[in-house]
Computed example of a mutant assay.
Amino acid sequence: MIDRDIKNLLGGGLLTLLGLFTAWYAYGHYSLGTFSRMGPGFLPVILGGVLALLGLIVALPAWWRRGEPIRGDWASAGFVIASIVVFALLLKGLGLVIATITAALIALIPDRSLGQGTKLKVALVIAAITYLIFIQGLSMNLPAWPRLG
C-alpha cells in the first residue's frame, strides 16, 4: 500500500497537468502579444503557468509526506453521475425546472441524514436558483417548463 499523501499528490498533479495544458493550448491557438499590448493568449498562458506552479507546490511536499489512503463513497458518486445523465435526458422535454428537481432528488438519494421533505425542499430551492440564474439572469435559451402541444 502507498503510504504517501496520495490525495495531495494526485490533486497537485492534476492541477499541474491542467495548468500546463491550458498554457500549451493558449500558446498554440492565440496570439500572446507583448507586455504593452497583450493578445488574447497572454492571460491564459500566464494563468496556466501559475496554476501549474501551484499544483507543484501542492504535489511535491506530498511526495515525502505520509497520508491516508483514498476512501471514496462510490455509491454517492454513482448517484451524482446518474443525476447528471438524467438531467441531460430530461432537459429538452421537461424543461429546466423539472429536470433540475429530478436530478437533485436523485443526487440526494444516498444521504440518509435528510428526510424526504427536506430533500424535496433542497431540490426546489436548487431549481429556483437555477431558474433565476440561467433563465432570468442570463436569459439563456433553455426551456423552463415542459412544452405543451
Rank of each mutant, 00 (worst) to 15 (best):
I46D: 06
L47Q: 09
G48A: 04
G49Y: 01
A52H: 02
A52Y: 01
L53M: 11
L54D: 00
I57D: 09
I57K: 08
A59E: 10
A59F: 05
L60K: 08
R65E: 13
R65C: 08
R65P: 05
G67S: 09
P69C: 03
P69F: 02
I70M: 15
R71F: 07
W74R: 06
A77F: 10
G78K: 04
F79Q: 00
V85Y: 15
V85G: 11
V85A: 14
L90S: 06
L91Y: 08
L91M: 08
G93F: 07
L94N: 03
I98E: 14
I98V: 10
A99M: 04
T100I: 11
T100L: 08
T102K: 09
A104Q: 06
A104M: 12
I106G: 01
A107D: 01
L108G: 01
I109H: 11
R112V: 13
S113G: 11
S113R: 12
G115A: 02
T118L: 09
K119M: 03
K119E: 02
A123L: 10
A123Y: 03
L124K: 00
L124P: 00
V125Q: 00
I126Y: 03
A127R: 07
A128C: 10
A128W: 00
Y131C: 10
Y131S: 08
L132S: 11
F134M: 07
F134E: 03
F134K: 04
G137A: 04
S139T: 12
M140Q: 13
N141F: 14
N141H: 15
L142G: 02
A144T: 06
A144Q: 05
W145Y: 15
